[in-house]
Design a protein around this nucleic acid. Sequence first.
DNA 1: TTTAATTAGTCCAGGTCGCGGACGAATTAA
DNA 2: TTAATTCGTCCGCGACCTGGACTAATTAAA
Lengths: 411, 411
Amino acid sequence: MTMRQEVAPLRHGTMRERNLAVVLGEIARRQPVSRARLAETTGFTKTTVSSLVASLAGAGLVREDGPVRDGERGRPATAVSVNGDRVAGLGLEINVDYLAACVLDLGRRIRHRHIVAAGNRGRAPERVIAALTRLAEQAIAAAADQGLSVAGAVVALPGALDLDGGRLRTAPNLGWSDVPAGELLHAGLPPLPLPADYDNEANLAALGELWFGDGPELGSYVHVSGEIGIGAGIVVDGRVFRGAHGFAGELGHIVVDPGGPPCACGGRGCLEQVAGQEAILRAAGMAEATATSSASPDGPLSALVARLEEGDERALAAVTRAGESLGQALATAVNLLDPDTIVLGGIFSGLARWARPAAEAGLAAGAGVVRRAPPRITVSRLGGDAAALGAASLVVERILDDPSRLVARRE
Amino acid sequence: MTMRQEVAPLRHGTMRERNLAVVLGEIARRQPVSRARLAETTGFTKTTVSSLVASLAGAGLVREDGPVRDGERGRPATAVSVNGDRVAGLGLEINVDYLAACVLDLGRRIRHRHIVAAGNRGRAPERVIAALTRLAEQAIAAAADQGLSVAGAVVALPGALDLDGGRLRTAPNLGWSDVPAGELLHAGLPPLPLPADYDNEANLAALGELWFGDGPELGSYVHVSGEIGIGAGIVVDGRVFRGAHGFAGELGHIVVDPGGPPCACGGRGCLEQVAGQEAILRAAGMAEATATSSASPDGPLSALVARLEEGDERALAAVTRAGESLGQALATAVNLLDPDTIVLGGIFSGLARWARPAAEAGLAAGAGVVRRAPPRITVSRLGGDAAALGAASLVVERILDDPSRLVARRE
DNA sequence: TTTAATTAGTCCAGGTCGCGGACGAATTAA
DNA sequence: TTAATTCGTCCGCGACCTGGACTAATTAAA
């Protein structure tokens, strides 16, 4: 009858696990920091901090940096910081025209990054995942060469994922539908200490923004990742908001023009029909070659940018129109989700110079009853593999959030 | 640099606090249940369960129901259940034309309920809160007469709350703006074991639905609470989604008709301009008396319902149009938030018979790319004081979620 | 150079709390 | 009456955090 969240019983072991995460998090936040200061900031006793740090160091997650004197008097402290040279996270991405892999160490430095062009549209999921596996093996080997052991992997998929069953419900741009992606990945990818996981490309790209973009300044934000479709990753307090089934953030199918052209979704005048890549190109008079995304360096998008730089009227009008509609949709999103910031990613990051003013105008017109001012719009500086970066970051994040699985019991 | 959530250090005391919540939650979920079964379901040892139950019983939160034999053989168990006769929660509500108080025991039975008509529009906040305080004192006395001690209170306010500072940013229907509601309430309300809290009326009405409506069946849902404005409470996994500043769920200012009439918010064709109470009455040719809300039994709304029942064409058209627009706005909300269910509350619960079909049609037209089917629309059965009910429920919820503050240390 | 003051980190006893097996209690089936 | 079974408590144990004492290493002052 009650709907309370299931709360797991807490035993001593759990307590220790959580406390490992507490000090590791504090170390990550303050980087070179002494045990004594950790004791102050966490509230633990020095004894406890020492014990927890020892466990973390034993797992290679943390490192002593040697003595440092702070200019104060007294015995110098031995600084402790996150060890970036032992453990790493692997991010993988399947997209329409490329596969990507990315290895991040615990300090979130990029240790390996590999994007391979691949025509995945219409290809069998098994074959694509086999190719991804090869990429993953290369990445793991490259990490090993640098002394890094990959602890876990997350895969970014371009489509709507059923979180419960791990099935890829539909990935229109790949031509896939109802693919048991979870099973295939678990079977295909090499075994790692942490189980492999997968998520929507838009969500992971949004997380990438958190760690590699403007980061903490963003607060809660909506990250627009327009490629062929238009998706949005919603991040609140550092966590992705997924909704009940994991389908939240379908920005592309917000209706911006009730009398507009019909959409494959059954509606009319969806944002995607006005501001999607194909729609923009069509409106700009560049109807050819719609099957390639922004990741290919010489795709139709760079041609569009070239025309915009030349001042081509039609291109400018198309992008302005797209920006306005995007702003209108974003106003709706702001009314419902109340974010601090909006980040333009995907194709919109390249088009921002022309689309942002229009988007800001559209947003200002529709949002701001209660709020003093509409949220600011920033532009992503991440490239095409933002989702792979976000995926690897998520692995790192999970390790920092719960290091216990990598720490040997009974130290 | 890192954005990880601050995780509090866990000491033994915290462990015990959490475990008290675990068993209390399990008791609430299974109602009459033996310690032995609690040990099974929670994973604790029988010893630990006994100790925790003893603490809870000492605080009057839990009660032994005497021996019960299950038809099995073996020693009969002594059933334990939540004690509804000792501790209670107080819910308060300030609205445009009434004040409400409501006392709920730990079993969520209504022990006291009082709605007082009051013309609060334009009245000074201090005076309104003084009147509310009298209502609260009466409620606490009524509870005491039944042997109940009120542990805490939550106040529902009809406006946009700044969660950080506890300021009521703006309550257009009250004519209030930038009122330090938090301070006033803390100063005015009688002291209770748990600190008084306050929240948006729409959010609390949504929570009321969780506990007094269809409850667990709802899953994640959007609760539309249309009065004069149109708000929405978004509940995910039993928690209210508030966004970055607490302003999430502003359904009323979603644009449903870009060329429509201007709105006070600065936009055009906001849902409120089509489906708000005033707009519906105007469209139905009943422009008078727009300053009263649905809570007054003989308000304009019952007149509208009367006309609808008579089959008045103009009224039917107005409500159908409102329903369609609402459905359209809900489709947008579904695309962004992905709820399981939508609940129609406020004025829409009374108009549901006529508005729901149109809303369902509008919703179906705009939502459903990825999802198999759009979320179902249900109708709230709660009355005008849904928010007060939700507020009291929130107090109960908080006690069940963290009973430690009411449990004496060292038992 | 010595001495006092100061700060860092470890050691060890002590307390809290959950664990687990043993045990008595209460009941049913044989 | 006896055996089986289930409930709840008792008691010793172990995990883990606490707190003060203690050692170590350094600077400021004498």
